[in-house]
Design a protein around this nucleic acid. Structure first.
Lengths: 189, 189
DNA sequence: TCTCAAATCTAGCGCTTGCTTGGTTTTTTG
DNA sequence: CAAAAAACCAAGCAAGCGCTAGATTTGAGA
């Protein structure tokens, strides 16, 4: 196997791992549980991954790539700051919902990562937050909202990330509704 | 020992456990690590607690009791909805800062609790959120903010809880500043 | 000073953990 | 179809885990 194997099989395994890590937590999920859910024996896992932590890193990485792709796509073509904010919030909520397992894992389990893995993921996170910062800066520059700009970004992302604690996909509210509600709350009718 | 021992010694042990659980996570913290940090042998731990999970529960319980006490105290005497909101936000941030270890553990590690422990803690959490809901309902009733009221509560608590991820006690911003900034962001100048 | 309970220690049991090794099967490819 | 590569399995090791049992120490009250 290569160091950063991106085979289709590996993607499948990572998705299964994401589900178990999300449901039970990383440390409580044993390699035997993972292997069972994947339909292989525990030893075979280490053909695809060098160690357990690498699986965790892959789960989070996939989630972040997905988030970045969805956000980029949502913003293309939009120029109005208010519309860009709402589109980004909606994209964020969509990926939280669609790739919920990976994002819950990212929120909860980053302390189990090695320093090397953490550095890679922090870079990706910073890049994503930079996207948010630009959109918020534009809103402030246009006079739509007031206040400390990094602080607004942190409040907004905090409010959105917290949705994984309570948001029910079967409920009546769509990501669109939530993004709209957040916009209204901070004065972006 | 009694089932719910509240001795001074136990409080000390719980505070030490909170620190380790916060720094390394519950599952990665072994009873031997806990005992070392407490200056006793691992076996002696089980004189104070029935099992490891009970320590986790005690950590979270202490944090919640602290949060509730600070919030109650902050609200006594205040009647103006806007002032009550800001006082509650400030109280929330203060307890997040003062009892940071316990609150980080509560946010990250509730999945390791038994059902019995979880039920107790969920009741406490619901009680605390009820306090928030009333304050927000009053703001909406007074026409200070608009929107779905439980949703506002969730956005606000999300924004505030997220501060444990980035807030630096050594920085220049006080809990007061942050509470003020959040108030302004949602139109409670 | 004696008593007794609370607190601690010593020693280790039984089990699970992540991971390894060496060999076998399956799949891909020229 | 043959050879190479990828995927998998069977078996198990060394280490660490939560927790227990029984003996010992400590400290406050009679």
């Amino acid at each position: 196997m290569t160091l950063t194997n991106n085979s289709k099989r590996r993607k499948e395994l990572v998705a299964i791992a994401a589900r178990l890590f999300c449901e039970q937590g990383y440390e409580r999920t044993t390699v035997r549980m993972l292997a069972d859910a994947m339909g292989i024996k525990s030893g075979s896992l280490f053909h695809h991954f060098n160690d357990k932590q690498e699986i965790l890193c892959a789960v989070i990485q996939d989630g972040m790539e997905s988030a970045m792709a969805i956000a980029d796509h949502a913003l293309t073509g939009l120029t109005d700051p208010k519309e860009r904010f709402k589109a980004l919030a909606k994209a964020h909520l969509s990926t939280l919902l669609n790739d919920r397992n990976a994002h819950v894992v990212a929120l909860y389990e980053w302390r189990s990562l090695t320093d090397d893995s953490l550095n890679v993921l922090i870079d990706m996170r910073d890049q994503y937050e930079q996207l948010w910062q630009q959109v918020i800066d534009d809103c402030v520059a246009a006079g739509l909202i007031k206040g400390d700009q990094p602080l607004i970004r942190r409040f907004a992302l905090g409010a959105l990330n917290w949705t994984v604690q309570w948001y029910d996909a079967e409920g009546e509210k769509t990501p669109d509704d939530l993004a709209q509600a957040l916009g209204e709350l901070i004065g972006l009718g």
